[in-house]
């Protein structure tokens, strides 16, 4: 009975971590549908963003942004500034990688690109380890008091509300971008039918640059949100994220950004709720089990179409 009583609270945690996974999954889905390959470096791009935010925090303070905590949150405006700087820096790194590596492999085939991305994952991780060491880096040492949501009997921290709100806000922004901007439409067109997009006069390289920018920005923010939620980050973070994120993406239908959003929340909730029944140590394996079940039952994903 006690197990069941914990479930509403676990659902809340699941939505929080799931919304982070969603942001990561949307990025994987975008690169998959426009560039045509599964980017196994995406987890490490998220980790890079999380580390860059820490590194750029002094720069944000130097710009004169106040470090006083924002309301009930555990961080101040300077941290939001660092987040924005980290997003820009992550985009710069990813675009450089595209320029020196992925661009040369455009015609080399999907699987070569996947292998290259595995190498990038390894490289980014070792770079992180070189710069920041293998020990955890702490975002905030402060313990934040959780607030009880009246009527539901579940607790949530202000930081967690910030995380979910940020994820929802960014997803909405992305939706508007894809629906209504010229480049957003070009991205959707390229994902839909790259050959026809070319015939229509859409410049594939520009679309690819924008895809990396969106994917890397969402990845950086997602990595930083993980830092806020877990309070610390480690170099292995990226590799550990890969499985739940890809499970989310496949659950939602590979290449379907909206599906990845739903998939992320489903995986996050399943992982958290599983801890009521299973050892917490197996949380990462839950994503794998869901993935395999999904592949057995409906490999096109919840929202996926055929093909």
């Amino acid at each position: 009975m006690e197990t069941l009583a914990r479930i509403p609270q676990l659902l809340v945690y699941g939505v929080v971590s799931g919304s982070i996974l969603s942001l990561g999954g949307i990025g994987v889905s975008l690169t998959y549908s426009v560039l045509g390959f599964s980017n196994f470096a995406h987890g490490d791009i998220m980790a890079l963003g999380a580390y860059l935010a820490l590194a750029l925090l002094p720069a944000a303070s130097a710009l004169g942004i106040s470090g006083r905590p924002l309301g009930a949150l555990s961080f101040g405006a300077d941290f939001v500034g660092a987040l924005l700087l980290a997003v820009v820096a992550t985009c710069a790194v990813v675009l450089t990688l595209d320029r020196i590596l992925f661009r040369r492999l455009r015609n080399a085939g999907r699987i070569t690109l996947m292998i290259a991305s595995v190498g990038v994952a390894l490289g980014l991780r070792s770079l992180i380890q070189f710069c920041w060491g293998p020990q955890p880096q702490y975002y905030s040492a402060k313990i934040q008091r959780a607030q009880v949501i009246p009527g539901l009997g579940v607790k949530i921290k202000p930081d967690q509300i910030f995380i979910v709100a940020t994820a929802i806000g960014l997803t909405l922004l992305l939706h508007l971008f894809l629906r209504h901007t010229r480049i957003g439409k070009a991205m959707r067109a390229t994902a839909d039918n790259a050959a026809l997009a070319r015939v229509t006069g859409i410049n594939a390289e520009r679309v690819i640059v924008w895809t990396w920018i969106l994917g890397a920005s969402l990845a950086a923010v997602a990595g930083i949100l993980i830092g806020i939620e877990n309070k610390f980050i480690m170099p292995e973070l990226g590799w550990q994220l890969l499985l739940p994120i890809f499970a989310a993406v496949i659950l939602g239908g590979l290449g379907n950004a909206y599906g990845a959003m739903v998939g992320g929340v489903v995986i996050g909730v399943c992982e958290e709720v599983s801890t009521a029944f299973l050892s917490t140590a197996y949380k990462p394996a839950v994503a794998f089990v869901i993935l395999i079940l999904m592949l057995l039952v409906r490999p096109t994903g919840i929202l996926g179409r055929r093909g």
Partner: peptide, 10 residues
Amino acid sequence: ADYLGIATIG
């Protein structure tokens, strides 16, 4: 191939 790749990581 993508699915096998991620499943082998898993």
